[in-house]
Each structure stands twice: as structure tokens, then as C-alpha cells.
């Protein structure tokens, strides 16, 4: 079972993966259920009217600027669940990414690990690979929650679109996870790595929100890791071309930098 650092890291994260995954699956299923109970109801149309009357900044915050209507399954799920998913997965990625090296140093467990004949780059890459698998597992469990709930209510998208919709929320989290890993490898304290990744996450979130309403920074919105997912219609299969690849490329660059940083790092006594 514990043949390498990847499997060991995955094993350590299994509790968190199950907790996050099952929690999000229940949330997704509950929101599908709520939609099914009000879909033919006048209250859904009134909700749409309420959302349209909200101030632009509030609409930007809840992600409705990109959503034509909340009366559709796609619109309802995006505003109530999917738009938050990259943010939630990013928080998970910060926790796991910063733990990779800095927490092992703080706990003094890294000495025994690094006393084995394993190259430093492998430790970084295997720990990040475990983070990727864990994030996709959480997203898949959330998708399964949606799919399971739709067995009891009739909605339009096929099951694979729902799975795609949740798993497409992972790449932004991988960028944040890559930055958290870089901080974990480069900085002395895990707390410092958390602060760096959290500031980036918040900046990216607010850039995506504010760029929807402020003309001055509108062109910069594409730099936010949340832009592509928020502006796509994942349940309809409409994604912004290339968006995922740019995020994955950014994540790879961050992991390469993390490998470089850990290679130069002096392990704390």
C-alpha cells in the first residue's frame, strides 16, 4: 500500500478527501433537490427577478453577471453551487499544498523521509501528484452527489456533463495548490506559505469579481484563475477554449519552481 511518497500522501489525505467530497456531494444533492421542488414554481421566477434587481457588485459577487437566468438548471446550479466550487477546492489545495514540506519540517518528520535514498524533486512531484488526485476525487464525489440526486428528479444535462462540470472546477485549485507547494518548499514556516497562497486566492477572487463591474480592470479579468470557469457554462458543455490548459501550464510552472526551491532548501533543524 505505502510503496512511495505519492501513495503515502494520498493515504494521509484520505480522511480530508472523504470529508470534503461527501460534504460537497450532500450539498450538491440538496441543491438539486431544492431546484426540483421550485423549478415549476413561481418562486423561482421571482428569484430570477430578485437577482436581476441586485446591484451589479452583488451580482458579480454571487457570479450572476455571467448567468443569463437562474430559472434553468444550469443557471441555478452555477449560482448556488458550481461558482463556489473552485474557491472551496482551492482552500483544500492550500491546506494540502502547504503541508507537503513545511508541515513535515515543523513536525520534524522530514529528517527520516529525506534520510532515505529519494531525490528531492521526487518528493515534491509525488506530493503534488497526490494533491491533484485528491482534488479530482473531491470534485468527482461532488459530481456524483449531483448525478445521484438527479436520478430522482428529471433535469436536462446527462450525467457526464455534471461530472465534467465539477471536475472542471479543479484546475484553478491546482494553480493555488502549486503556489501553496512552492511556498511550502521555499519558506521556513507553513503559516507563511498559507498566507502567500491565501492572499493570491483572495486577489484572484476579487479581480474576477471587480473586473465584471469596473471598466478599468475589465481586461485584467482573464488573469484571474476564476475567470474561465465563471464565464463558462460547464453544465451545457460550453467551456472557454484553452482556459484549462493555461491553468495547468501555470500549475506545472509553479511545481517546477517548487522543485527548484526544495532542491536549494536547507532543512530546518
Amino acid at each position: 500500500m505505502l510503496r512511495n511518497v505519492f501513495l503515502k500522501t494520498l493515504r494521509d489525505a484520505r480522511g480530508a478527501v472523504l470529508a470534503w467530497g461527501i460534504g460537497l456531494a450532500i450539498l450538491a444533492a440538496a441543491i438539486v433537490y431544492v431546484f426540483s421542488t421550485i423549478r415549476d414554481d413561481a418562486s423561482l421566477k421571482s428569484l430570477d427577478a430578485v437577482v436581476q434587481r441586485l446591484s451589479p457588485i452583488i451580482r458579480a459577487f454571487i457570479g450572476s453577471e455571467d448567468i443569463p437566468s437562474v430559472t434553468t438548471f444550469d443557471g441555478f446550479m452555477r449560482i448556488e453551487f458550481l461558482n463556489s466550487l473552485p474557491l472551496l477546492l482551492s482552500i483544500f489545495a492550500i491546506v494540502e499544498g502547504t503541508a507537503a514540506v513545511a508541515l513535515e519540517e515543523e513536525r520534524r518528520s522530514i529528517d527520516l523521509l529525506m534520510a532515505q535514498p529519494i531525490r528531492r524533486w521526487r518528493v515534491v512531484v509525488e506530493k503534488y501528484a497526490a494533491l491533484v488526485v485528491a482534488a479530482y476525487a473531491i470534485a468527482a464525489l461532488a459530481g456524483l452527489g449531483m448525478v445521484a440526486a438527479t436520478r430522482f428528479v428529471v433535469v436536462e444535462p446527462p450525467w457526464y456533463r455534471m461530472m465534467l462540470a465539477t471536475t472542471q472546477a479543479v484546475p484553478p485549485a491546482l494553480v493555488v495548490g502549486g503556489l501553496a507547494l512552492l511556498g511550502s518548499c521555499a519558506l521556513r514556516r507553513r503559516r507563511s506559505a498559507i498566507i502567500v497562497a491565501a492572499v493570491f486566492l483572495a486577489a484572484s477572487f476579487f479581480l474576477n469579481v471587480l473586473a465584471q463591474i469596473a471598466e478599468l480592470i475589465r481586461p485584467w479579468r482573464k488573469l484571474s484563475i476564476f475567470y474561465g470557469y465563471g464565464a463558462s457554462r460547464p453544465l451545457s458543455g460550453e467551456l472557454i477554449p484553452g482556459y484549462t490548459w493555461w491553468l495547468l501550464l501555470a500549475a506545472v510552472v509553479l511545481v517546477v519552481l517548487a522543485v527548484f526551491a526544495f532542491g536549494r532548501k536547507e532543512l530546518a533543524v
Binding site: 494521509d12 520534524r108 518528520s109 529528517d111 527520516l112 534520510a115 532515505q116 535514498p117
Partner: peptide
């Protein structure tokens, strides 16, 4: 260092096990 660590056993002075 990797080749050395393959041929060396180490007991740290302070450590934490998993």
C-alpha cells in the same frame, strides 16, 4: 547525496514518526 543515503542508515537526534 542520494547514492550516499542509499548506503547510509541514520538515527536523528530529534524526530517525529508518522
Amino acid at each position: 547525496s542520494t547514492r550516499i543515503r542509499r548506503r547510509v542508515g541514520y538515527v536523528p537526534g530529534e524526530f517525529t514518526l508518522y
